[in-house]
Design a protein around this nucleic acid. Structure first.
Lengths: 215, 215
DNA sequence: ATGTTCAGTTGAACATGTTCAACTCGATGC
DNA sequence: GCATCGAGTTGAACATGTTCAACTGAACAT
């Protein structure tokens, strides 16, 4: 019964999260709806955060699928970045009403649902692989110096866009889409310009900074 | 007694927050330590978040004082930005152990302690005025095109640095300081370069984006 | 004096995340 | 067959943020 129970609790939790949001979905409601005792949910999932983490993984997978089909179409860095990020906005759209709650939970450093947490490694890898592909298979090619660091920077940028999205109250999250539509070509242009001697120094400094900060 | 009680609750809460952090400071403990009933704290402060907001205001004020004395020394954009941001890291340093909790609370869109909330307008204004001064009184002067938008962008950058700081587990938050030491000259350089014809287009696009996204 | 009002205060009650001692029951060992 | 073990399960208990009906007492009106 264990595996069955675990996946039953998970699917019930995800359904309730989707229907009611984070705060309105109590652990008691999840357990009751799944037909198990409250404590049983805790036997399978260490905390409510861990259930949110399951939702996060779910949404990441949806995003990955959509993004893969965007990336399969080729294109330059700008087009690919725009496509992947807009696919992200779409994947998240369903949750915008509760998005704030979820991101709040996810951003807490100790949280299992944090994009940086060990528990989230699966979704993090999935997502970061996306951005590696985005950069590496772009044509025309991204300058070699940038190729190592850019994927992670873009992944961070996506987290930033998500944070913006949380605060975006415009209908259909139009402002977030505007941000992506504007930022993608801007980043594409800066990457191209990084080859120029005037900017080469700034680009090198930036890469050095990223490496210094990481260690 | 009302005003007395209110400020007593506030100072007790702030003391306990400093001593024990956010989660370990219960509303009951605050009330008990202040010698009032639990419900009384709620009569004066709508929620625990509102008490955190008081702490946020306190820290912002400390930062403003330190930053003002940095700005009084003149200097170029890089030096001023570096000084103000490092003063911020210092002002926050005392809370790093609990910083994660506080920022988590502060970032929740509905929270009173959110930097974007109506309740935080006082600290937000205080902080944004700092960055306006930082930009406007810098010498050599910041290019005119940038002068309107740059202060708010730098204020947002400071929020970003704070977010980084939350996740920074290095001793003395060395990585955050490294980030500031590296980012300040980088931003200074990019601002100077924005005058060049090659970058002028990118700079204009970025400003247009900021304006488009804001509305 | 007496009654009225109301800001300030009280503490019990409530909802919810989480913990835990006890129970079930199939598998395993003898 | 019987005892033992332990993964899985139960529901009551606990801690804490928050709410609320009731109480207090000073200020004011009559």
């Amino acid at each position: 019964m264990s595996d069955d129970t675990k996946s039953l609790v998970r699917s019930t939790a995800l359904r309730l999260f989707r229907e009611r949001g984070y705060a309105a979905t109590t652990m008691r409601a999840i357990a009751q709806e799944a037909g198990v005792a409250t404590g049983n949910a805790y036997y399978h999932f260490a905390s409510k955060d861990h259930l949110v983490q399951e939702l996060y993984l779910d949404v990441t997978r949806e995003h990955a699928v959509a993004a893969r089909s965007v990336l399969a179409q080729g294109g330059d860095l700008t087009a690919r970045l725009r496509g992947v990020m807009l696919a992200g906005v779409d994947a998240f759209a369903e949750y915008h009403a509760f998005g704030a709650e979820f991101v709040t939970v996810a951003i807490r450093p100790g949280s299992a649902a944090s994009p940086f947490s060990a528990e989230s490694s699966e979704s993090r890898e999935l997502s970061q692989a996306l951005f590696r592909d985005l950069v590496e298979e772009a044509s025309p090619e991204v300058p070699t110096v940038l190729r190592d660091e850019l994927p992670e920077l873009l992944w961070l940028a996506q987290l930033g866009v998500t944070l913006f999205w949380v605060y975006d109250g415009s209908p259909g999250q139009r402002r977030t889409r505007t941000l992506v539509e504007g930022a993608a070509p801007l980043i594409g242009r800066l990457v191209r310009l990084s080859r120029l001697p005037v900017l080469r120094g700034a680009a090198d400094d930036m890469l050095a900074l990223v490496r210094a900060v990481r260690s």
